[in-house]
Design a protein around this nucleic acid. Sequence first.
DNA 1: TTGTACGCGTTATCAA
DNA 2: TTGATAACGCGTACAA
Lengths: 333, 333
Amino acid sequence: MPVTIKDIAKTAGVSHTTVSRALKGNPAISLETRERIQQLARHMGYVPSAVAQSLLSRRTQTIGMVITTIADPFIVQVVEGAEQTAQEAGYSVFLSSSHNSPDREMAVVETFRRRRVDAIIVTSSRVGSLYSSQLDQIEIPVVLINNQEEGEYLHSVAVDDLQGARLAVEYLLTLGHRRIGYIGATDRPKSNGRRLAGYRAALTQCGHICDPALVLSSAADSDIERGGVGLESFLAAGVTAVFCYNDLTAIGLLLACHQHRVAVPQELSVVGFDDIDPALYTTPSLTTIRQPRLKLGQLAMTMTLDLLKGQETQDQILPCELILRESTSQRIP
Amino acid sequence: MPVTIKDIAKTAGVSHTTVSRALKGNPAISLETRERIQQLARHMGYVPSAVAQSLLSRRTQTIGMVITTIADPFIVQVVEGAEQTAQEAGYSVFLSSSHNSPDREMAVVETFRRRRVDAIIVTSSRVGSLYSSQLDQIEIPVVLINNQEEGEYLHSVAVDDLQGARLAVEYLLTLGHRRIGYIGATDRPKSNGRRLAGYRAALTQCGHICDPALVLSSAADSDIERGGVGLESFLAAGVTAVFCYNDLTAIGLLLACHQHRVAVPQELSVVGFDDIDPALYTTPSLTTIRQPRLKLGQLAMTMTLDLLKGQETQDQILPCELILRESTSQRIP
DNA sequence: TTGTACGCGTTATCAA
DNA sequence: TTGATAACGCGTACAA
């Protein structure tokens, strides 16, 4: 059993009120007893109970963070940024995985509500709208990462998918590529839709037509596998460059190229999206669109804390950045 | 303000005690009022307060997890396993990074104590012994991952570093290699020591001598950089195979080889340790020693929950597994 | 300068 | 079958 202020009060021969005041340096308490009690508390190994404090203050200094799975290299950095910012502000974060199951996600949110977290951050939910039934009961701030939704308590921080995709495709056009493929992800329809839109926008803006045959959206088991699926049909269609929904897909494509002895970037240029760590370790290293992942997490947490202070906040859309590496090159006619 | 049982009691015209009982299906309450109140609770959006329950039960159903940084791909899977197991058992986990700073680690543990977590799990602490001053005040179970320590409330789950290292070096010997280098990590002295011991054991057991010149332990900034540092001296010393402290170091070595046009595995065989995800994506893919990371996390959490149930537990040492990929080959004389 | 009394939301005990 | 009361650990208004 942890030591309580009553325990201290008893051994000090004072009331627990005096102990409470002495410990927070209340000047109403005489310097002498104040120091005596503080020393006693240290000796007895007293650590105040956040549980009791929370019951009183109706604040738990706790943020619940819902993620799909921590195993996703993209999410890792978001969590890192969020946790770091929270820690600095004296908040702790509950991490809970939904594994993309709507049921699990609802259960997780339910748990957070029971625990009286002060706010909830949700990353890359695929079911955002699904738990709107829950959301209208929620009276605490909810900040969504990369998943804009409408609602009174709903706020969001997101990356500019469309701008990022344009950046990638415009760069490929600059390199002289004309037949540019896109490998999408059907299981994340929203961001996929925006990236596809960016891909199309870049092409049409430069006066090129979008050949639907060059847009692939197979339902492979994993992002990695998805990358390898369309290689042959792409080559048959005269594709010289491919923009992928994310880095894992691009890595899958690189692996497939390696297997089929397709030289990257000489025969095929490849661009990813996210800039996860492994993108640096592939051969060739991956040209990609960097999402400011750490910043995404930090910003989401900062916004959350601002909301808790009662401040007004504005939804944020962060720009992406093109990272040039070795998987792209001038088109060889 | 969340709805409380008192709110429900008021609108139902009964005492809050009755509400409490009705909600937990106490058969003492008449079926009629029981159902009436349960329905009312649902309608009013009642969610019980874990805070109040914790104050009474002295249990928070919460585990504190101290990690160095979630950005470490090794730790990610450990957290995944632990969180998953916790969730299934109705526990939540507080995640907090120490960033290898002893001060931060102490602060994190302090925070956990304030929050009255039921137990603490610490992964790969570099300062285990440092906070023994805190530990003797701790009255809750502490489970260490990959960091054995002695103490009443201290338990551990670890991987068999020595056996893993032997596995790696014995395999290289089988391939005909004799001049085998080791790149260590001075900042993790314990596990590094054990892996080095395994390296030596494998060599001497097979009747070979350990040339100290082949053991490198530079103090590079990062694991990755460390991998590139000794390449030239290794080659000059006639090394044909290298065993690395971990995969990141091995990846650093692969990158250096790529730059210096050293063919892997033809000119140099490389073995890593951990089997992190990126090890699959390198070219060539990395032969490595797999740590059962997910299991490490699951087991640590299971042990923790067992301890909370008052069960006896035994410290665990898990074996490693050799994963054959493309970065190793028969020595070419 | 210090102490008493009450409340935060819940559960357990005892009484009705 | 239901209700009043106390307790968990802490902070605060009010009293002494």
